[in-house]
Structure formats: C-alpha cells, structure tokens
C-alpha cells in the first residue's frame, strides 16, 4: 500500500519525529525526495524549522513549488504545515525577503512587546489554545489542549476567518490557521504528548 502522507524532504526539516508520531497513531508517512511523487499521496505535511527564507529557498530550489501548488490548489488535497511549515503557507514574513507559498492571506511578523517587558522571545514552551472556529484538528469540545511552541515570529491573518486557534503570549497570536484543505499549526504536535497524538490522528483520519 502507498503511504498516505508525504513529507517533502526539505533541507530545513526535521522529519523523524513527525514520521514517528504518525506511525504511533496508526498512519503511514513517507519522506519524499522527488516533487513528482507527491501526486501518489493523499496528504502532505510541510515540516520545517529555522529561517523563513531558508524554508522557501528549500522549496524553490528543490522544484517543489509547482508540485505543492498543484497538490494544494488544483487538487485541493489536505495539507498541513507545522511550525515554519505553517509560516510558509503565508504570503510573506518579516524574517525574510522571499515570498511565501501565499495560500493563506497572512503576513508573518515578529513578536513585539513593550520596552521593559519581561516576556521572552522566542515564545517557547507549553501553551493552551483558544479554538476560534469549528475544525477537524482541534475540536472545540475537547476541553483544554496544550501544545509545545517555539517560535519568534507569528502569522497575522488578513481574514480573521482563517484563524483556527490562538494562544496567548503577551497578546493573542495565531496558533493554528486553515482555509479549506490548507491547514497549519505553529506549535509542534509531534512534541506534544497525547494532545499532539490526538491532533495527528485526526489529520491521518481526515
């Protein structure tokens, strides 16, 4: 059987944990090295850490842009961005100069706190979500769900309807977003114990 979830082998990624949690919840994932293979899969996860431009140049130079656009926009199959992978779904980022994938109408900006604030950047650690709309990944009725975050930049959606959940760090920031088949989480479900497993199981079963 063909594994249902493809994870593009971008140089900015750290995939072993993502593959591991998918297997833990009964799914199948494969790290894919050639863009033309994406068509064989039902879902894609864009996982990545590090700087925005490094992420986008990984996508551009690896020839992934066309295949990803076709997967997400033409064929409208489920696609999940994790951490930097979520930010890459947006139009642009203050962190870099390259345009993002642009599937979500959002800008990625740096955390800004008042001078003298004791709040730290990055926003690192466990935080709870405020779910903003019914969605398949983090059901509203589940009660408190906490996830592991680590990021210095966050997405600001132009259309509030794209915001799936927020978390509080100084102010409410986008913790997860979605538009149709395109979904992204700023936190790391693969590092969030049973909460992350539940989320990944729901993505696997979509």
């Amino acid at each position: 059987m063909i594994p249902s979830i493809a994870i593009p082998a971008l140089p900015c990624g750290n995939f072993s944990s993502v593959v591991k949690i998918i297997e833990k919840v009964g799914g199948k994932a494969r790290i894919v090295t050639r863009p033309e293979e994406l068509g064989d899969f039902q879902k894609v996860i864009i996982a990545g850490v590090g700087a925005f431009d490094h992420g986008m140049s990984s996508i551009n130079s690896g020839g992934w842009l066309g295949a990803l656009n076709s997967f997400a926009i033409t064929r409208r199959r489920p696609i999940l961005g994790i951490c930097l992978g979520m930010q890459l779904l947006c139009k642009r980022s203050e962190e870099g100069a390259l345009p993002g994938l642009g599937w979500i109408d959002a800008d990625v900006v740096k955390f800004r706190f008042d001078p003298g604030s004791s709040l730290k950047i990055p926003h690192m650690g466990w935080n709870t979500l405020r779910v903003q709309k019914p969605n398949p990944l983090v059901p509203v009725e589940e009660g408190e769900q906490r996830f592991y975050f680590v990021h210095s930049y966050h997405a600001v959606c132009r259309d509030p309807v794209d915001v799936l959940a927020t978390a509080h760090h100084g102010y409410e920031v986008t913790a997860a977003l979605s538009r149709g088949n395109v979904m992204g989480v700023q936190f790391h479900p693969e590092k969030s114990h049973r909460f992350g497993m539940a989320l990944m199981r729901r993505f696997v079963e979509l």
């Binding site: 949690i21 592991y148 790391h188 693969e190 590092k191 114990h193 049973r194 497993m197």
Partner: peptide, 8 residues
C-alpha cells in the same frame, strides 16, 4: 532516546 520522546 528520541524514539521514546513525544516531547522536546
């Protein structure tokens, strides 16, 4: 170790 960790 990493295989056992579903946390950072």
């Amino acid at each position: 170790f990493a295989g056992e960790c579903f946390m950072p």
